[in-house]
Simulated scan of single mutants.
Amino acid sequence: MDTVTLHNSDITCSRIALGTWAIGGWMWGGNDEQDSIRTIQEAVDRGITLIDTAPVYGFGESEERVGLALQQGRLRQRVAIATKCGLNWDHQGPYRDAGRERIVQEVNDSLRRLRSDVIDLYQLHWPDPTRPVEEAAEAMADLKRAGKIRAVGVSNFDADQIRAFHAVCPLSTVQPPYNLFERDMEKDLLPVLGELGLDTLTYGALCRGLLSGKMREHTRFDGDDLRNNDPKFQPPRYRQYLEAVTRLDALARRRYGKRVLALALRWLLDQPGVSVALWGARRPEQIEAVTDIQGWHLDDDARAEIDLILADTLTDPVGPEFMAPPDRHHR
């Protein structure tokens, strides 16, 4: 599998990373612990060497399962762990809290849950509008100097916030949403990322499963699954996205003998500015398609056809804004 060495660090990892939000169960209708452990171990066996998690994914559950899976499989030395900070939670749910005290508490809690003495990549999950960006940057710079973390990243930051953070604490990575259906990063972030030389860990590669090719009009989601509130999964938009997937799948079959999932990941990895693509999974069989992404690239004609399909089918596109958590004062 292709690898990349992250900017301002000595961390070399696979260009596909395992995203573990769904493994935590929360907002994905629950999940089975043994399935989670097998998924993590299967990902490493297939050459994935970066695992991305966060405390808020299942309120500690995802980190616990990552730590347990790596310990049971004796895999810790084979992977880099990326986790996050800056979200707190109570009975009302998660909210942004990126104060120094919270960040220091979180890093210690994460180290314990992950069963590790260091976090390879520590990321501020969301900017906290109630506090200066510099406060979190200073706290994370101190954690790096103390040896608790190896590299620093931010997630869901805009260009100005990235600049302000980077001026205080040099960044290695930025984690924005990016996939065939959600492309705001191209106009908002790419220029500043290129200027600063930062790497990206893009999330949402399959757009909450839409680009897996497995969704149908009658597909339903259990319990607290976030797709029950995702505007993309509501009519009439849902039908438009499904039509786009059908046509993208036909393109992938005709040109490359692949399916839409492989096309979506290959498109993402071939995009300028994409260093690592996070691929979410919660069952071992969902990792198997990783072999379909290696050893080929999209040509210019295919890229042009993809853009035509999207322009023709998505007359009312919408981004991932619904996922943004509130700050402490607006819940």
Rank of each mutant, 00 (worst) to 15 (best):
M1N: 13
M1P: 12
D10E: 11
T12C: 10
A17L: 12
L18W: 01
A22I: 05
W26K: 13
M27P: 01
W28N: 14
G29T: 05
D32A: 06
E33D: 12
S36T: 07
S36V: 05
I48H: 01
D52M: 07
V56G: 00
G60R: 11
E61T: 15
E63G: 00
V66R: 03
G67K: 15
G67V: 14
L68Y: 13
L75G: 11
L75Y: 06
T83G: 07
C85L: 12
D90Q: 10
Q92M: 15
G93Y: 02
Y95L: 12
Y95W: 13
R96A: 15
D97N: 11
G99Y: 13
E106G: 09
E106T: 14
L111H: 02
D117A: 14
V118E: 07
I119Q: 00
I119K: 00
L121G: 07
L121Y: 06
Y122D: 01
W126F: 08
E135D: 15
A136G: 13
M140T: 04
R145H: 12
A146D: 14
K148R: 09
V152M: 10
V154Y: 05
V154Q: 10
V154K: 09
S155A: 10
F157R: 01
D160P: 05
A164S: 13
C169A: 15
P170E: 00
T173I: 10
P176M: 06
P177A: 11
D184S: 04
D184M: 05
E186Y: 04
K187A: 11
L189T: 04
L193K: 01
G194W: 01
E195D: 09
L201M: 11
G204A: 11
L206D: 11
C207M: 08
L211C: 08
G213K: 11
M215Q: 15
R216G: 04
E217F: 06
G223M: 05
D224K: 07
L226P: 03
P231E: 10
K232T: 04
P236E: 09
R237K: 14
Y241W: 08
A244Q: 03
V245T: 07
T246C: 09
R247E: 10
R259M: 13
A262R: 06
A262C: 10
G273R: 00
V274C: 07
R282T: 08
Q286E: 13
I287E: 01
T291F: 08
T291W: 07
D292A: 13
D292W: 09
I293T: 07
H297A: 03
L298T: 04
D299T: 12
A311H: 08
T313V: 10
T315K: 06
V318I: 12
A324E: 05
A324K: 11
P326A: 14
H329M: 13
